[in-house]
Write a protein that binds this DNA or RNA. Structure first.
Length: 651
DNA sequence: GAGCACTGC
């Protein structure tokens, strides 16, 4: 029988068995003696859940001080906090809590606080000395998200400021990384900081190299494993939804050629967060699962074989054209290693790399830090708001190119966040920085909407644009039906007004049924409405949450949320004034020319304006993935609404 | 007449 006592005993045994348990004492000593410590430890060594408890026990939370642990994702913060609360035998939100967007369980008695790196960054805007913390742990720093990178630079300054200001005592800084290479980079960045190694716990994984075209090779390898190797599930890493789905079909087709008793192989295409449940469930008795997946943070149980074609889809940003693109590129050594290790979580495993060993040696050591390949305007606005004025001289770990920085500064200036000499514009610059979850251009939209008296409409628009795929992908069989339903919402003016009416119609229904139904019923009715209207209910809910959050933000800033009622002209002019950098004009041949970059673009077929081809539009997204470049989320405008001075060089 | 990986405020 499971008694309370036996459960706690089990937990204690588990804690003691973790590799990090054997180094508690020297680890705490290093932290006591040094203000900055870099910890290298592989996944599974226990650093995320144990170190904060060690620090608590060593007295780092005395006098109401906290230990803050930043994670790169919500799910990581949430699961770690839950686990630690369990181990400490406290209620979540008491001594141990987490804080993520839309969900904050921390309280005044929280001492160990898990959070996303974005939220820690956000906290810094309110309390630049992070005075409530005695220790900040930056976990998974090797992922090098843009937020981690600027956070690491910011924390360096906080440490200095705190010692100068003599406020809050010393801030201890612990950077945790699963990669040795990055640990060295961090150590150097912090002036030769101590590096502490925690032993890992990983079963051996044998690596095999083969050589052929990768989708074919993956298929061959899957069946080779299935027919010749011992039991254990297979994980195949692919680059996108199309690949996972087509390989799923190929596996299924191939299975038909096998004798009846060999057909016990179950292909599962895993794309993004969808269909996760199917993957977590063990395969039916006697079956082997083959999970066809893009890179994901979720841990799939039962995997003993990894098939790695060695490619990944990576985003790059071209500052000169202000354009994002997604390319299939070879994976880095670090990513390949991470993939192969998935085979050794539960026992010895095997990894099949579908290329030659020689090719492996030529791979990049690790993925380029995100900050080197993204639009910097968001990051720079935040840095400006935190008082870092000299962006070109900023102490980046890896410095983005001068032109990328200048392009972002220029964009912020055009959006009215910065003055001509790149100082923060008052009050607009600060206001835009405070609307933190938003891209600066969306913050700008809200500030202008306040002047155009259509803030209510723009809040909805921005919330809807901030979530992905409001409408279900019409790729499925109901395509025709989906299109005609979309027409029910479609506005002749464009996609923005279409989103507005989806939001409003769903909201009206929501208000109406809330009064008469229980919460569970409301959920059910809303899901049915979404299904009937081909709307993604998760996206819509996310849009509603976002709306609530940014509405709170603008109200806190003293804005009065007013609606333009039926006068949509004000709203349309506001769109044109905000998104003038993304305007496109129809040409003689029916294609469009993006006015800022000069790119030749086409209207994406999913837009409601696809067949009407208006003379001039503004757009929010430029997609570059095939031979054509497509603009998405567009609205028809009068070119005269665009700021005349910006485009006066046009004929 | 197309089709984009992951993560986050």
């Amino acid at each position: 029988m499971w008694t309370y006592h036996s459960i706690m005993q089990k937990i204690e045994e588990h804690r003691k068995s973790l590799p990090i348990a054997s180094v508690e004492k020297p680890l705490i000593e290093v932290v006591q003696k040094n203000d900055i410590v870099i910890i290298v430890g592989e996944t599974g060594c226990g650093k995320t859940t144990q170190l904060p408890q060690f620090l608590f026990n060593a007295g780092f939370c005395r006098e109401g001080k906290m230990v803050g642990i930043s994670q790169p994702s919500c799910i990581a913060a949430l699961t770690a906090a839950k686990r630690v609360a369990e181990e400490c035998d406290v209620q979540l939100g008491q001594r141990v809590g987490y804080s993520i967007r839309f969900d904050d369980t921390s309280s005044s008695s929280t001492r160990l606080k898990y959070m996303t790196d974005c939220l820690l960054w956000r906290e810094a805007l309110v309390d630049p000395l992070l005075s409530r913390y005695s220790v900040i742990i930056v976990d998974e720093a090797h992922e090098r998200t843009a937020h981690t990178d600027v956070l690491l630079a910011f924390l360096k300054k906080v440490q200095l400021d705190r010692s100068k200001a003599e406020i809050g005592g010393v801030l201890k800084l612990i950077i945790m990384s699963a990669s040795l290479v990055d640990a060295r980079v961090f150590s150097e960045y912090y002036g030769g900081a101590n590096v502490f190694y925690v032993p890992g716990r990983q079963f051996p994984v044998n690596i095999f190299y083969t050589e052929t075209d990768y989708v074919d090779a993956a298929l061959v390898t899957i069946f080779q494993i299935h027919l010749e190797e011992e039991q254990g599930d297979i994980l195949v890493f692919l680059t996108g939804q199309d690949e996972t789905e087509s390989l799923e079909r190929l596996v299924q087709k191939e299975l038909e050629h096998l004798p009846e008793d060999k057909r016990n192989l179950l292909p599962l295409a895993l794309f993004s967060s969808e269909q996760q449940m199917r993957v977590f469930a063990p395969a039916p008795f006697g079956f082997r699962k083959v999970v066809l997946s893009t890179d994901t943070s979720i841990t799939i149980p039962g995997i003993r074989y990894v098939v790695d074609p060695g490619f990944v889809k990576a985003r790059t940003y071209d500052p000169s054209k202000r354009m994002e693109r997604l390319d299939v590129v070879p994976a880095s050594k670090a990513l390949s290693l991470q993939r192969s290790r998935r085979a050794g979580r539960e026992g010895p495993g095997k990894c099949y790399r579908l290329y030659r060993e020689m090719e492996f040696k030529k791979l990049e050591d690790s993925t380029k830090p995100e900050i080197m390949r993204c639009n910097l305007s968001h990051v720079i606005l935040q840095l400006k708001a935190l008082g870092f004025d000299d962006i070109l001289g900023f102490d980046f770990i890896d410095k983005p190119s001068r032109s990328a920085i200048e392009k972002a500064l220029e964009e912020l200036q055009l959006l009215g966040a910065l003055t001509d000499d790149w100082k923060l514009e008052e009050p607009a610059g600060h206001q835009m920085a405070r609307l933190l979850p938003l891209d600066p251009v969306y913050s700008r939209a809200l500030i202008l909407a306040n002047q155009f008296n259509c803030l209510e409409e723009m809040l909805i628009t921005v919330a809807m644009l901030s979530v992905e795929s409001i409408f279900y992908d019409p790729r499925d069989k109901r395509e025709e039906e989906a299109r005609s339903t979309r027409n029910h919402f479609a506005s002749v003016e464009g996609d923005h007004l279409t989103y507005l009416s989806v939001y409003r119609e769903s909201n009206e229904l929501l208000e109406q049924i809330k009064a008469e139904n229980s919460e569970a019923n409301v959920d059910q009715i809303m899901r049915k409405w979404c299904k009937d209207n081909f709307v993604n209910s998760h996206s819509l809910k996310h849009a509603r949450d976002t709306y609530r959050q940014i509405r709170g933000n603008v109200e806190n800033m003293g804005f009065n949320v007013s609606s333009c009622g039926n006068d949509m002209l004000e709203y349309l002019r506001c769109l044109a004034t905000t998104f003038f950098l993304k305007a496109a004009q129809r040409q003689m041949d029916g294609t469009y020319r993006a006015l800022e970059s000069g790119e030749i673009v086409h209207i994406h077929p999913a837009s409601v304006l696809f067949s009407s081809k208006p003379e001039c539009v503004i757009f929010n997204e430029l997609v570059m993935q095939t031979s054509n470049k497509y603009i998405k989320n567009l609205t028809r405008i009068d070119p005269l609404w665009l700021p005349p001075h910006h485009y006066n060089s046009e004929e």
